[in-house]
């Protein structure tokens, strides 16, 4: 039996969405990272969350691993690029800024939802502490 369990559950959610936000920020930072065709492209980063149960009670969520996108990326013809091969091709990451921005919005809202859950739980525990006073 853990004291203030709802706080821990909300915290675990904040942690998951914080890591997702980090991953999305990394993806956006590298959206224009160009590599030569003989090297792998930047791989889109995903986080995989899993719900946690301990002794039949909920314990929130946890990031269990990271997954990575396609290392082949997309081949783009850009002969003036300094990294272009002799045929004029470079490799760019296979990512879409629209996807990243909508994921960013989702991750941010979900983080805020967990903060709201934390605040509600705090208020509830504070009320419980007033019992009898």
């Amino acid at each position: 039996m853990e004291l203030f369990r709802s706080l821990s559950i909300a915290e675990s959610g904040m942690d998951v969405y914080q890591q997702w936000l980090d991953a999305i920020a990394d993806n956006i930072a590298n959206i224009n990272t160009v590599t030569p065709t003989d090297e792998a492209a930047f791989q889109e980063r995903f986080v995989v969350a899993q719900s946690q149960i301990g002794d039949g009670r909920p314990e929130g969520a946890k990031v269990i691993r990271a997954e990575f996108g396609n290392p082949l990326g997309r081949i783009v013809y850009d002969p003036s690029h300094p990294l272009a091969d002799e045929d004029g091709f470079v490799r760019v990451p296979d990512m879409d800024l629209t996807d990243q921005m909508s994921n960013l919005l989702m991750a941010q809202r979900s983080y805020q939802a967990n903060v709201a859950a934390f605040e509600r739980a705090r208020a509830a525990y504070e009320t419980a502490l007033k019992i009898g006073s």
Binding site: L3, F4, E11, F118, E126
Partner: peptide
């Protein structure tokens, strides 16, 4: 930072 802030709240309730 979020761990520390939530920790402060938890400590206060405790």
């Amino acid at each position: 930072l979020d761990d520390e802030i939530t920790g402060l709240t938890r400590t206060q309730l405790h």
